[in-house]
Every structure is written in C-alpha cells, then in structure tokens.
Design a binder for these strands. Structure first.
Lengths: 149, 149
DNA sequence: ATTGTTACTTGCAAAAAACAAGCTATTGAT
DNA sequence: ATCAATAGCTTGTTTTTTGCAAGTAACAAT
C-alpha cells in the first residue's frame, strides 16, 4: 500500500477507500448477490475488466473489507467474503439504493424494497448481515428457564 | 451529457453519478461547510485542481444535484447551492462519516457527532437540511388554538 | 488607468482504465 | 499419464482521465 489519505475528513477518507466506479459494485456482488468467485464478478452486467477486478480485489483485501480463502472443495477456486469492516458498509450502500430508487426513473429497485428501507431499515441490515455471520457459539446461557423442542 | 448508465442497479446508478474521488467532497463543502464559491472549493484541504473542479461542478449541475446563481451583490461571483436531490444525499454522506469514524484511527469526527449519528440521526439530517430550506410560507393554520408570545 | 479577483479554459505530461492476449496451476475426462 | 478446459490472474497496448501550469475575460477596487 502506497497511498496516504488526502485528509482525515471522514468523507474524504471513505472516498479514498471505496470512492471509485468499481469497488462498491464488487462489494454489492458479494453482499447482496452472494457472489464469491472471480468469474462471477467478471460476469456482472457492468462489465468490469479483468485487470481492474484483480486490482480492486487486492485493494479491498488490503483495506480489510473483504477476505479470501481457498475453496476447500476445489483447490483452483478462491472464495471471497466480506469482513466486519465490509459488512459495516451495508448502511452506506442501502442509502445509495434509497437515493437511486428515488431518482432513477428506470431503477431496478422494487417498491417493496424502498418501503422497507423506510419502515424497517435496521431489520433489513440485520437480515443482510445474518447470512455472513458465523454460526454463533451460544453465549452464556440465560438463567430463565427455556423449554427445548 | 453523453454518458449512459452502466446498468439500472441502484448502486451502479449512484456510482455513475457521484462515484469518483471529488464529487461528494464538493457537496460536503456546500452542505456541511457552507461553502458557496469556486475559490472556496479550490481552497479545500484535499487540493482539487481547477479543471477538475470546473468539470465536476458542471456534472453536478447537469445531474441536478447543485444549482448556480449569480451573487446579487457582486456580478462576477457565482453562488452554488444544493438542490433537493443534492440534499437527499445527506444520509449517504452521514453513513460514510459513521463508517470512517469507526475505521479511521485519526478521524476528524468528534465522539459527539458519532454518538448523535446513532442517537438522533433524523434530527441531525433535519438540522443539516434546515439551513438550505427556503423560509417556508406558513401552511394552513392548525385549528388547535395556540397561544402567541 | 492599473492592478487584483473570480471563474473559469487550454495545453501538455502522467496516471489510470479499458481492451486484448497470454500464462500457470489445478481439474476432469480419456 | 495425457490432454483439453477452467479459474484466477499478468502483461502489453490504446484510450481516457487526471494533475499541473499557464492564460483569459469580466468585473471590482484603488
């Protein structure tokens, strides 16, 4: 990593990390479209070129926004996944979606999704995050008795 | 305007409009730092160059995110202001601020601001917007009696 | 009348993106 | 064991965008 930040203004900091035309699209693929593999990103409709994709994957990994690991079932495949830092960009992406849903006359966002952004933003965020959360080891059991099925 | 959208995915649409390293910084200056003039933008600490600034101001105006008008007091000065479409990007910027506040160890965001993002996001948004809203003509008076000071 | 300011524009070099091809380590099929 | 296919990249080359310096037109201030 060579780059310095232009400033420590938080907007500027954010833009230095993901303020380009591709980084958030890759993260969208990973988080909202559940894509995991290089070829899947390459096939996205916006048509990223392979060198740019390789570059952005590396940058996102360097910034700690995504992580990669080998596919246990297939040694030639690599699986990309979001880190917590990456998942914390969900609210940013959802607000972009809300804005585009309002101003793109031909937007692909459904009315239902827009409505949910207004009515249940937190639930939506939790739902999107949940699929990436490790199956959680149960915390210290509550003292209240619970019936088991 | 020559450009087409890469797709109607809302993330992609948003990035096509403001997904570069400068557009949101200019909007930050206008909305959060109350800057209005070309020179003020030029003087921002990130150091935008003049041709890029001119280009982005034009794009932002073409996209309906900012508007320009002549300064009534000084014919050679032009004043830039956010439109409603621009103000509607406040939530996006606030979420970027929240993220950077969390992950930039040297962030310029105060603890108080971060706290307010969590505790009173809507109030914060209203407060930021309010300074750009036209002094509103009073709406139809409410029927409930109100005492006047 | 001269000098300074403001909001740009223009020209050029450097950096980044897009486009096209090639390379290497698995695989799976024969 | 060999061979073609596939996945994940690299490596050129061209095109576009950026950064930097200088210049200009319209006004303002002295």
């Amino acid at each position: 990593m060579k780059k310095q930040w232009r400033s420590h203004c938080p907007i500027s900091f954010g833009l230095d990390v993901f303020g380009d035309r591709w980084s958030l699209l890759i993260l969208r693929d990973i988080i909202f479209k559940e894509k995991k593999r290089y070829q899947e990103f390459l096939n996205s409709e916006e048509g990223i070129s392979t060198n740019i994709l390789a570059d952005r994957l590396k940058l996102l990994e360097d910034h700690g926004i995504i992580s990669k690991k080998d596919d246990p079932d297939n040694k030639k495949q690599i699986l990309y996944a979001p880190t917590k830092k990456g998942l914390d960009l969900i609210p940013v992406m959802l607000e972009i979606i809300r804005w585009s849903g309002r101003y793109d006359l031909d937007t692909a966002v459904s009315r239902e999704f827009i409505a949910r952004l207004s009515n249940d933003l937190d639930g939506l965020i939790r739902e999107v995050r949940s699929q990436f959360e490790k199956p959680q080891r149960l915390k210290k059991q509550r003292h209240k008795k619970e019936s088991r099925k």
